[in-house]
């Protein structure tokens, strides 16, 4: 299987990131996008309003593999943890589909994993201060 060169992956990631919902904070990008991701973008944008307080509280963090993780449910009231888990599962299903669709749209499904990693880093880079992100060591850190 031909691997996507790291530099190409980065360029591709940067280019596509401009077309899809940027890390949740950049809602201005939501109107742009390849058709394959439009539906996913809409779902993710709708969900972002519910996820944002979870990012801000630290209950949910941005992982390096491009997923979101319910890293500390204990921050939330007991009655809200179930809904938070469902939100995270739905968001991750859409993110996985998004990475797959971007890889397809660029004519190489084998790029999916590279795109996932590239996006994971990009979400983390763009995350506002105070959100929890996964460091290269795998540990969770609060973004300064």
């Amino acid at each position: 299987m031909r691997r996507l060169p790291r530099a190409a992956a980065l360029v591709l990631g940067m280019a596509v990131a401009a077309l899809v919902p940027a890390p949740p904070a950049a809602a201005e990008d939501l109107d742009l996008g390849a058709p394959g991701v439009v539906r996913l973008k809409a779902a993710m944008a709708d969900r972002h309003g519910q996820l944002k307080p979870l990012y801000e509280s630290g209950a949910v963090g941005l992982a390096r593999d491009g997923s979101v993780v319910l890293r500390d449910a204990g921050i939330l009231p007991l009655s809200q943890r179930q809904a938070a888990g469902a939100l995270v599962a739905a968001e991750n299903a859409d993110r996985t589909a998004l990475y797959r669709e971007i890889a397809r749209a660029n004519g190489n499904p084998a790029w999916e994993q590279d795109i996932r990693i590239t996006f994971g880093q990009r979400w983390i880079d763009r995350a506002p201060a105070g959100w929890w992100v996964q460091a290269a060591t795998g540990a969770w850190v609060r973004k300064p």
């Binding site: 890293r71 500390d72 449910a73 204990g74 007991l78 943890r81 888990g85």
Partner: peptide, 11 residues
């Protein structure tokens, strides 16, 4: 009580 990750908890 609560587990470390908060995924099992009672109040």
């Amino acid at each position: 009580f609560a587990s470390r990750d908060g995924l099992v908890a009672g109040e």
